[in-house]
Structures are given as C-alpha cells and as structure tokens.
C-alpha cells in the first residue's frame, strides 16, 4: 500500500515541478533552462515570507507573483530575441540560471535556509500512516492539472495558445497578438514554477542550488510529454513509478537516474514521446 502511495505522490511532486516548464515548452517551443532557478526563487519567497512573519501559505501567491514578474522581464529581454534559435535559448537561460543562483547567494548567503513546514504530521490512509504533506501534494498536483485543463479548454487565452501550438503563422494571420500570448504564457509558466518552489520547501533543503537537482528530471519529462498536460501526467506516473520501483527493489542509486534514462530511451524509440497519446 505504501508502495502505491509512494508512486502516486512521487508522480504528483514531479508533475508539480515540471508543469511550469511544460507550459512554456508546449506553447513557445523554448526550453527554459533557468527552470531550476525559478524553483529556487519560489522557495526563497517562502523564506522571505517567513522572515516577514507571514502565514507560510501566503508564500504561494507571493511566489507566483514574483516568478511571473521575473519571467516577464526575462521573456522580454532574453527569450524574445531567441525564438528562432531554440538551442541558443537553452544556453542563454542556463546562463541566466547561473546569474540568478549567484544573486540569491550574494543576497541570502550560501546557507541552508529555514522555512516553516506547511503541513507537518502524518495521516492514516489505506491502512498505513503516511506523510500528510505528500497526500496534500497529490491534491495540489490534481488542482494544477485541472487548472491548466480549464485554462486551455475554457478560456480565450487557452484557445489562442492552442492555436499557436498548432500553427503559429496561421494564428498570427488570424489577428492573434502572438507576442503578447507568448509573454503571458512565459509568465504563467515561471509563476507556476516559483509556486512549485514553495511547495517543495517542506520536502527539500532550501539553498541557492536547490533547483538544479530538479532541472534534468523535469526537462526530460517535458521532452517526453511534448505540449500536453495529459501526457505529462502519464509520463510522471509512469517514470515516477519506475523510479520508486527501481529504488525500492533494485537500488536507489539507479532510481536516481531512472527518469532521465527511461525518458531518453522512450524518445529514441518515438521521437514525439507521449505527445501523440
């Protein structure tokens, strides 16, 4: 039973962490390699909120706003000139990640920061005691997933974004302000990533390089998922599940590289990954 819970909650956490990256890659076809830096920024918003004596939950909207604003500036200054050069965009955002990491270090220092736990304690589910926060994370992942489904299916922005995914030239010809939609998408993606950073604070240490460890995993998952949130959920469940199974029954060390290796193999077999699912 614990195994099942481990699998779904691991998948949920992977989904939360990757969702922002997917939003950007799906619409903009740009890989934001500063993704890890946004997770860090989000987590430090929790530190700042704690420092100001705010309720720890208030860090969530704070991080979303900070992430989105920072994302807006980034899109305008760094990403926009590079839409035609996707590989260069990877490099430029990686460089930006270094810069953000060093700025956080200069500002807050290298030390591990203390953050208040959002939901301590355990809960009895399915006949076992389990971390309450991980169960909450499962709920958060579902909310984020449904939120995106609504955003894409039910709003004008989502419609425009889908139009751009399918055929950008046509979308522009139809009078859509593609530049603005890109900007908004990027901001939503980075805002969401910063929010995910706050959600990570009860699970990991908060320090200037905390985000990097999550970058490769989420990058690989997004490559497999393409532009579909459904595919991302499937990928997280499948590969997160594989990670837990490998860690449990073979070796946690191999478990650590399971996601990356399996995603690479899946892409080798089908270059579109799960996007066609």
């Amino acid at each position: 039973m614990t195994l099942l819970l481990d699998i779904v909650t691991t998948a949920a956490i992977l989904f939360i962490v990757s969702a922002g990256l997917l939003a950007i890659f799906g619409v903009l076809k740009i890989v934001n390699f500063a993704h890890g830096a946004w997770l860090t920024v989000g987590a430090y918003c929790a530190v700042v909120a704690g420092g100001l004596g705010l309720n720890p939950w208030l860090a969530l909207p704070l991080a979303f706003a900070a992430g989105a604003v920072l994302g807006g500036v980034t899109e305008r200054l760094i990403v926009r000139p590079l839409y035609a050069r996707p590989l260069d965009a990877i490099l430029a955002t990686w460089g930006l990640g270094i810069v953000i990491g060093q700025l956080v270090t200069l500002w807050f220092g290298r030390d591990v920061q203390f953050t208040e736990s959002l939901l301590p304690g355990t809960i009895h589910v399915l006949g076992t005691t389990y971390s309450l926060y991980r169960i909450f994370a499962l709920g958060a992942a579902v909310v984020i997933g449904l939120g995106f489904a609504f955003l894409l299916e039910g709003t004008r922005l989502g419609l425009s974004a889908r139009a751009i995914i399918m055929n950008e030239a046509l979308a522009r010809a139809l009078g859509l302000d593609t530049a603005r939609i890109r900007l908004v998408t990027f901001m939503i993606g980075t805002g969401l990533t910063a929010l995910a950073g706050v959600l990570l604070t009860p699970l990991t240490s908060v320090d200037p390089t905390m985000g990097v460890a999550w970058l490769i995993g989420s990058f690989m998952l997004v490559m497999v998922a393409g532009s579909s949130f459904g595919a991302l959920a499937v990928a997280c469940l499948l590969f997160g599940g594989a990670q837990v199974l490998v860690s449990t029954f073979i070796s946690p060390i191999l478990g650590g590289i399971t996601v990356a290796v399996l995603c690479a193999l899946v892409l080798r077999i089908s270059s579109k990954g799960f996007a066609r699912v």
Binding site: L82, G95, V99
Partner: peptide, 13 residues
C-alpha cells in the same frame, strides 16, 4: 561566476 554567467547570456543574445 556572476560575471561569467551574465557575460555568457549577453553574448548568446
């Protein structure tokens, strides 16, 4: 590192 990182971004763009 900050300087190298910033220089890198500027150069790429």
């Amino acid at each position: 590192q900050l300087i190298v990182g910033a220089l890198f971004v500027v150069m790429i763009i």
